[in-house]
Nucleic acid binder design. Sequence first.
DNA 1: TAAGGTGTACTTGCATTCAAGTATTCAAGC
DNA 2: GCTTGAATACTTGAATGCAAGTACACCTTA
Lengths: 231, 231
Amino acid sequence: MENREWMMNGEEIYQQIKADIVNFDLAPGALISENELAKKYSVSRTPVKSAFLRLMSERFIEIEPQRGTYVTKMDLDQIRDIIFMRTTLEREIFSLAIDHLDDALIKALQDNLDQQRKLVEQGQFEPQLFYRLDSEFHRAVFEHEGRLKLWQIIQEFQVYYTRFRMLDIIATSAFGQLLAEHAALLEAVKDRDKAKLASLLQGHLSGNLKRLEPRIEAEFSTYFLPIGNKK
Amino acid sequence: MENREWMMNGEEIYQQIKADIVNFDLAPGALISENELAKKYSVSRTPVKSAFLRLMSERFIEIEPQRGTYVTKMDLDQIRDIIFMRTTLEREIFSLAIDHLDDALIKALQDNLDQQRKLVEQGQFEPQLFYRLDSEFHRAVFEHEGRLKLWQIIQEFQVYYTRFRMLDIIATSAFGQLLAEHAALLEAVKDRDKAKLASLLQGHLSGNLKRLEPRIEAEFSTYFLPIGNKK
DNA sequence: TAAGGTGTACTTGCATTCAAGTATTCAAGC
DNA sequence: GCTTGAATACTTGAATGCAAGTACACCTTA
């Protein structure tokens, strides 16, 4: 437990708990309580309660009245469907981008790719830096098609999926592969090859699933809901 | 203000306020306060606060500390992008359904359509009944493709969009048109005509936009954010 | 030994009170 | 008339005490 010089308010406590969940410092399935966290952050139950209610709305925790509060487990079926959704939407967006292709988009993607390459070549870097560039690469295509709101909505609902991506980072560190896939996507855009793009996107966006799925049962089974759950 | 014999708890108050917002009893842009609603429902500020925090997470209200709390206005750009998203996803799902077509799906859609027709022919009915059948029609196709989780996720996205659909019901009552569109969709499924389906879905899912958009500026301008907003 | 009951220590839900910040009104002074 | 500032009536944020319900260890009893 750290020493703090300032009082944390409800917003900061919300951010902190959310970060702890996403970073697996609070493991899926873990039992937490308002009193425990109020004591940890030296505040009353009120701001903790406030944070809990917001996290419940985002499905990060489940509050069972008079029983306790749990960090939710990840739902593999749901993750599969989110990946399907992203793949379908990005196929359409990239296809439209090819119809409206211009130098500005190609330059934006190329610049982003160069930054990704520089990061990977220097070997040592914060994973978050790479993932920010990764997001930016995809966002640029949505923005080019005037669908920024759609990108923002997708981002909001990726809360279900954030922890899965983070687990992929921690467990596999497949940055080189992601870089190569982004480079291939850019080439397909330049070539205006929609069929190739569709195939590349399929592989790219389900890559984390392919990397992690074989290891879930043995290494991370407690992080996921049992398959075939009815929730 | 109604008389109640039982005490409403936080969950019920949340449901009630949400219903009031969706039904436009609380208009977009309206100013509300914890004290006002606590008094209305004869409870303390605590359960109202609890409801407010959940509604804020779902973007139904905005809490400005020490200033006030407002019902959010609808964002037309966002609504357009959600319709784009649904159209893209349903084109893919219907296309897959045609690849895996069987009698069970056709029967489910046909039965649903018969119920819709019965409702429309009897003239007088609760709009909610029709919209439940409408949802069920689309859900059946997702379920047939084993993508129920995706359907559920889309439903959650629709919090942004619920009020827009409701406004379409109130202002246009285009049930006959919706029925005809559903019938046409079923015919295209039977004919395995993917191109036709894509075109029909496009028109069907953006129908409310077409019906309402011309009337927004004159009749409902206060319900929407100014266009080109940066939020 | 095994089954059942009881007390205790937890959990979250709600009411109340106080604290801190904002907007508005209104009057005094220029 | 206009500006400025203080009083006032709001707003939400946080702390605290109590209420209601649950889980579990432990003891009693058959």
